[in-house]
Every structure is written in structure tokens, then in C-alpha cells.
Design a binder for these strands. Structure first.
Lengths: 135, 135
DNA sequence: TGCCAGACGTTATACCGTTACGCAACGAAC
DNA sequence: GTTCGTTGCGTAACGGTATAACGTCTGGCA
């Protein structure tokens, strides 16, 4: 359990349990899978997990993968400042990598503004094959 | 009803009904909303809609918006060749715009390959406010 | 004629996420 | 110290999203 050394605002018990589950999995988990892992710790209802996830996502320690309806612990040791992140999701091994590329973000923002669109949040997810899974 | 003039492989009845519903809505619809619109035409089960959607997405006449769990008719008159498309989703009016920017795609592909990742499909969705909805 | 592939229809089920309650703990304000 | 707002917690019920597992029907074709 490497454990992040974030500027983390004292996680509550449920939040710590959920984060711990995601970190030790090292791969995306659905909310219900997390719940199943935590029934032994006393959690019983989806809402308990979703509330913890909401908070963890809000403070940037967990990311939601929209195309998977799943959640993953943030990989960046220095979490905290969260611009746009692009995810690389391996369809063979489920590993998830993160890209933060300022020029990519700029391009995207520019293209949007050309169309008169004011973006608030960007979702970028690549599905494919990671280095280790390419034969 | 503008109606696409695609190189479309003879849609079946259900596929045509689903596509028509999406085109006349002009905004993203969930599969179940489509189903509700089509109960009058004899459709009864989600699967009938999902099967039609699968086909329409495969031939590029409909896009799936992952962050919305919804579907939208393709806006491009000249559909058919589908590279990466980025969607601009207005949170005020639900309109969806499409961006196809080759240099954006290149940047993304480059960044991925730097990480040894071989992408198959890209999902890019911007949430924000469209031109008309910015006061 | 017999076979096969593809679309279709139905039922049931699994998976994902939220609404609507009410309770308990804590800190700030007065 | 009581009041009050805020935040987190727990439970039950529900609604929205998607698929599994059947079986049927049709058209093409050897």
C-alpha cells in the first residue's frame, strides 16, 4: 500500500476505505465492485460508496472513467492541481495510464473556442492496448 | 427532415425508426427515451432499440456520448469516414457540436505513443456552454 | 430442398446511480 | 450552553442503463 502523500483533507473512514480499495486494485473498479470488497468492513449500500467517491473525485484523488462507468485511483504522486487529464485504457489488461499534455489541452480549448463553445470540463479517454500487452 | 444522403447500407425498419427519432430530436436521447418515442410504432423492448443503435453507431450515422449514456445523430452531412470526433456538449441547452481537428488527433496519438500505448478509439467530450447559451 | 446468416421479438435479469428519509457529530454565533 | 448550519452517515426504495438467453422468421444460395 504505497499511500498517497497528498495535501489531503483528512479522509473519513468510508472515504479511506474506498480509496484503499481502489489503490490496492490498481485498476478501475465499478462502484458496486468496491461495495462488494467492503461488505466485510460494514458497508451495505451503494450510496455509501457513491458518497465517498464523489468526495474523492472532487479532491482529485480518484478519477471517474466515463466510458467504463468505473473509478480509478489517481496515478500522479503530486495530485492536487488538476487540469485536463487524458486516460489510456488498455482493453487487454485494464490498466489505466494518465497523460497531461498542456499543448493538447490548448489545442482542444482553441478548437472549442473557434466554435464559440466555452468548455468547463474535458473528458478524454483512449481505448487501446498498453505497451506490455502489445505482443 | 433534412435526411442524410449517406452511403447507407439499406437500413432496416427498426434502424430507420431509431435514426428518424434521433434526427428529429436534434439532441441526445437515451435508449429508453427513444423506446418511449417508438412505442406507437410497435417497439416494446430495450433490446430492439439497442440493436438498432449498435448498427447505426457501427456505420457512423449515430454517435454514442459516453458521458451522457445517450446517443445523437451524426451532424456531418458527409458521414462515412470517421476519424476521431470531439463533442461539445452544452449543459444549458443540450445541443451537441462536433469537432474534427486533424492536428488535435495527431497530438493525442503522439502523446499516447510516447507512452507506448496503441489507441484504437478516442473518446473526447467537452462539457460546457455553447455560443447561444452564453449570456 | 436444405442450410445458413441476419434481423427480429420476448422475457428475465444484471448492473449503475439517485431520491427521500432520518440520525449523529461538529464548529460558529450569540 | 443552546441554537443552528453543515457535513457525514445509514437504510430503503426506486429508476435508468444494458445484456443474456431463448426462439422465430426471412431471404439467399448451393
Amino acid at each position: 500500500m504505497a499511500g498517497h502523500a497528498h495535501n489531503a483533507p483528512q479522509l473519513t473512514k468510508n472515504q479511506a476505505l474506498v480509496l484503499g480499495t481502489l489503490e490496492s486494485a490498481g485498476a478501475p473498479l465499478s462502484a458496486y465492485t468496491i461495495l462488494d470488497h467492503l461488505r466485510g468492513e460494514g458497508l451495505r449500500a451503494p450510496l455509501q460508496v457513491y458518497r465517498a467517491l464523489d468526495k474523492l473525485v472532487a479532491i482529485g484523488m480518484v478519477h471517474r472513467l466515463e466510458s467504463l462507468n468505473a473509478f480509478v485511483a489517481c496515478r500522479h504522486p503530486g495530485c492536487g492541481h488538476h487540469e485536463t487529464v487524458a486516460f489510456m485504457i488498455c482493453e487487454a489488461c485494464s490498466n489505466v495510464g494518465e497523460i497531461t499534455d498542456a499543448s493538447l489541452e490548448d489545442r482542444l480549448k482553441l478548437a472549442a473556442e473557434d466554435a464559440g463553445f466555452a468548455p468547463k470540463r474535458s473528458i478524454i479517454e483512449l481505448r487501446g492496448t498498453c505497451r506490455d500487452c502489445q505482443s
